[in-house]
Design a protein around this nucleic acid. Structure first.
Lengths: 151, 151
DNA sequence: AATAAATCCTACCACCAAGGTAGGAATATG
DNA sequence: CATATTCCTACCTTGGTGGTAGGATTTATT
């Protein structure tokens, strides 16, 4: 499993906020209730999103969270990258400039690098807006054999 | 991390055998030594490959393993699927016909399904032969800006 | 027949990330 | 002042990862 509940719930929170983005702040308890998720656990996840600049927050009564930007300006890759730390499918992919010592002669490395590239390319193309509008053709590509024709 | 050492080492073993495929049997200790991996650990991994029909084995002195088919007839997806169990990037992807109960109304599911499809499409296109010939253009795609022109 | 070299089989184990839970401090509203 | 909220720190359980250990079985060589 490449993406844990942390990343998945983070995306769920972002989508929830994007759907209700009328400019007001939404409380965490509202989100947790709507999505049927533990509020305490969401707390630790939304904290990452907030510190990462993905959200704006307001403390105190009637406080809550809202998106910092337009839904179309978030790509899925940055959301998952922030919460998961990495999206690399294997741990032999170079990270922070550090690569495997056998990299120069490893014959399987190009495969993993290619896989990593394919994943990141896909996730950085899809936006939050695509998700809330249900852009199936963009998300499912040629796997989508019964998409609406206008997407 | 989607692919653990189990799957990675399994691929390394398959590539090692493919490179030396002159029809003879190769002992596990030879492979372990060449690849600098624990022989005991490889034992448990190669056992999965063997039982899954990927290899042929010969017991006793001068015994060992060899590929059951031509390197071009193995795609990477089947090798990793056998050893990892699943390649799904999240655990909410339908497996063995069982899907999440919220699937019908989940707005993030198409994203995960699309990601799963993209990953499987990539891995099932690449063959063992591609790896041993170093087919960088096929593995790295448009990320490969300095591939040999004949590939 | 003995020995060595190999696969095969079962059991065990340490570590760490995942997936939370708990409790309280700080802050804002009415 | 009471209430609702974010914010912060600490803790905990469980299962998978990444192995290790020891022996039984099979085959080739001498």
């Amino acid at each position: 499993m490449m993406v844990s509940t942390k990343g998945r719930y983070a995306l769920t929170v972002m989508v929830d906020l994007a759907k209700l983005s009328d400019g007001g702040f939404v409380s965490l308890s509202d989100i947790a209730e709507r999505e049927h998720l533990s509020m305490k656990y969401l707390e630790s996840i939304i904290s990452i999103l907030n510190k990462g600049g993905m959200l704006q927050s307001l403390r105190g009564k009637n406080g809550g969270y809202r998106l910092a930007r337009d839904p179309a300006d978030y790509n899925i890759s940055e959301i998952l990258l922030l919460t998961e730390g990495t999206l690399a499918p294997v741990n032999c992919i170079m990270q922070d400039g550090v690569q495997c010592e056998k990299a120069a002669t490893c014959s399987t490395l190009p495969l993993w690098a290619g896989l990593d590239y394919v994943i990141d390319k896909y996730l950085s193309t899809i936006t939050l807006q695509d998700i809330i509008t249900g852009n199936r053709k963009k998300m499912l590509g040629d796997y989508c054999d019964h998409c609406d024709s206008d997407q």
